[in-house]
Simulated scan of single mutants.
Amino acid sequence: MPALAPWPYPRWVAHRGAGKLAPENTLAAFRLGASHGYRMFECDAKLSADGVPFLMHDAALERTTSGQGIGGEQPWHALSQLDAGSWHSRACAGEPLPTLENIARFCLANGHLLNIEIKPAPGAERETGEVVAREAARLWQDAAVPPLLTSFQVASLQGAQATQPQLPRGLLLDKLWDGWLDAARQLGCVAIVCNHVLWTAEVVAQVHGAGMRALSYTVNDEAAAQRLIDLGTDGIITDRVDLFSPAG
């Protein structure tokens, strides 16, 4: 049974910067999450049409920006002009989409850690994994703790693994599909990141027995969080930066 390697990341991770309290995946959200004491953040990264990694969850622009269409089909110059804050609140009007480099500079300057979910546009799974990993390695080359790269897309993690094998990887799961643990082993993952309801004592033991850490998304109530702590899981991604103390 592989021993669990030291884990450099804190238990509590702020989802998309500050959950729902600020426009997700923006610097405004990161700043708000940090003001609540969080020192690790999760974000989503995809590629513009000209290959710039930027932060956004959805494939389509409409929900969280003033744009229309598929984000990955537009060049960065066009994406950089969009308003990614007005949809959330008037106070955040004019907030731009950040590049991965913008977020890296903020995190590095403030000693924050990052979980980058590789969130490719359809058809760009492997390429997105390759580019995000390459950029992450460049941006964090002098950092003591690298970002954790995660994805639901095996092809994206394969791209990251082939390009920058030294960066830590985690497999995201919304269900325990056949062969998930073997796939994580083949990908050299250091973590499994599950929908929190999937964790049981048996599954935690499987993951820890494989030498990997057990993380959960997206945990927004105290009973669910306590269950995961009692199970011995290693990380909790939450929207409720106002509810959970990251020191807890």
Rank of each mutant, 00 (worst) to 15 (best):
A183Y: 05
L231D: 07
G248K: 11
H196C: 06
F152V: 02
T128A: 12
D221T: 05
F244R: 08
Q164E: 15
E24S: 05
V203H: 12
D182A: 14
C194M: 13
K46V: 10
W7T: 09
I229F: 13
A78K: 10
I118P: 01
F244Q: 10
P23K: 02
A205Y: 06
M212V: 11
M40N: 02
G211E: 12
L97G: 05
S151Y: 02
T26F: 00
I103S: 00
H208W: 09
T200H: 05
S48R: 07
D178C: 13
Y9K: 01
L172N: 08
R16V: 05
S66I: 09
A45I: 15
E117P: 03
K20H: 09
N110F: 00
E62F: 10
E130S: 12
L108P: 04
H208G: 13
L228E: 10
V207D: 11
R134V: 02
Q141Y: 11
A162N: 07
G33P: 01
P96T: 07
T233G: 08
V154Q: 11
L187A: 11
S66K: 12
L97T: 05
I103G: 00
L97W: 04
A143Y: 02
R31T: 07
T163P: 02
R227L: 03
A5R: 15
S216Y: 07
A3R: 15
R31K: 08
W7A: 08
Q164F: 07
E42A: 03
L176V: 07
P146V: 03
Q226C: 12
Q74P: 08
P10V: 06
E95R: 01
N102P: 01
D83K: 10
Q166F: 09
S151C: 03
A104K: 00
A205C: 06
V131M: 04
C189I: 10
N115A: 04
Q161A: 15
E127S: 02
R185T: 14
C189P: 06
L172M: 09
L108E: 03
G232D: 07
L113T: 01
A109L: 03
